[in-house]
Design a protein around this nucleic acid. Structure first.
Lengths: 247, 247
DNA sequence: CGCAATTTTGACGTAGTTCAACACGTGTGG
DNA sequence: CCACACGTGTTGAACTACGTCAAAATTGCG
């Protein structure tokens, strides 16, 4: 877990795509600090620090006390919990531009493990420093409120698909739409994403068996709703998926 | 929908049980205002106004612009959405001491209808006034952050039961435990609640058929996990339910 | 290439749905 | 007062979607 200083300018080394700060979820927090930095002498790098994670590396673990919140810069992370028999249960995925751990602000401990799905990186914002800053920079608190409600709205919308679930088909349709929508925010090739999540991980998250997922994905392809070539997934008939998801 | 002024002292008219302010979810917001009221001349009643709803009355509707957030004082509310065929889908319940509509702060529009399940009442906090106050009372913003993260943690925990669902039994067990826990916060008769929600409403929320719910509730009674006499529901074997829920 | 990990396909079992009947209030009107 | 409708909850029998188990096919990596 290599720590480097964050910077507004992201370099794109080889095929590793970093999100730019202007599209980052942490922007409302970083921005006011930058604005005031001359008068307050708070450097750009004071609040935000970059961390690279390699595949399967744990960013933080469940029940650890909250020390920082994170924004994904590149790659992808899974959020997991363990039930009594140490079975892993995936409770969410996070992509570039999204936050991780912000929902630990109240309970003051992380509710899940955050694990990199592949070579990934985050911006880390120390919570103590954030609180200290928010005393000095009045805008920061309002930004934080905005940030929290925004992120909570996102979780809410995913909750809807689960609660609205009638069949496995509707759940999977909703999942595909959700992923496409979230990933297209930063790599804006509408209706097409590189699926970095394994079938097992998706099935685990959706509470389905890998076989069921596979069968329905096959069916969606036969019906020409979607097409997959390798890890690339494209939507051919978005309306059909929306109808199935029935949100 | 009768509006009256809120007051710290709740009177208990006949069998209508009001939550006291000290146990209300809105407390972090109301309290700092009260504290500062002498200096700022913000009356107790300025922020918080009481509203009574009769059975099936709509507090606010989906997609309406956000004007206020609410805290339940008495009774119970259901949160619903409509899919294309105007079928009602229940996405949550709210009991005394809990917030309604606070998750609309970011999207600036309510994500669901809020409907009283029976004679109920809420405290209404106008969002404009809240924002104005938060400029003057610095504590208020921090309280608001606390409030939002607290409430979001609650939603999160309910999300867990849905996502962790293996069988209808585990879902129903989790639901019963959740209800008991939330209701016992203010009417503290451990392990016993008056179930004001109809079977149809519960089944709708859980995404099950009323028949399935009925069968499993019957089974839980045969196994002596729970007992119901009329609307009264008591837990006989909490550990068994916890084991089933497997959270 | 060759092996392991991942994904897909098939056959069968089971949990939950669907449909239908019935039981129990509760309210309404004759 | 009874007759009837209507909402709500329970029970039974047949059907279906998803899970389970087993094996084949594909992918990815040293």
């Amino acid at each position: 877990m290599k720590e480097t200083l964050a910077s507004s300018e992201r370099t794109c080394d080889k095929n590793h795509k970093y999100i730019v700060c202007s599209q980052c979820a942490m922007q409302p927090i970083c921005k006011p600090v930058q604005r005031e930095q001359t008068s307050l002498n708070i450097s750009d790098n004071y609040l935000s620090k970059r961390i690279d994670s390699s595949t399967n590396e744990v960013l933080f673990a469940q029940n650890q006390p909250l020390t920082a919140i994170y924004a994904v810069c590149s790659g992808a992370y899974k959020l997991t919990q363990c039930n009594r028999l140490n079975e892993e249960k995936i409770v969410g995925f996070r992509f570039p531009g999204e936050l991780i751990g912000e929902d630990a602000i109240h309970p003051k401990a992380y509710a899940y493990n955050a694990i990199a799905l592949n070579e990934s990186s985050v911006c880390k914002v120390n919570i103590k420093e954030l609180k200290a800053c928010s005393q000095v920079v009045p805008d920061l608190q309002l930004s934080l409120i905005d940030l929290l409600t925004k992120q909570s709205a996102m979780s809410q919308s995913q909750f809807q698909s689960f609660i609205a679930k009638k069949t496995a088909e509707s759940l999977i349709a909703a999942f595909i739409l959700n992923i496409i929508q979230r990933k297209s925010v930063y790599d804006h090739q509408g209706g097409e994403v590189k699926l970095t999540i394994s079938r097992d991980n998706i099935a685990n998250f959706l509470g389905l068996r890998r076989e069921t997922l596979s069968r329905i994905i096959s069916k969606f392809q036969k019906e020409r709703y979607i097409k997959q070539s390798g890890k690339q997934l494209s939507i051919l008939n978005k309306n059909a998926l929306i109808a199935l998801a029935n949100l």
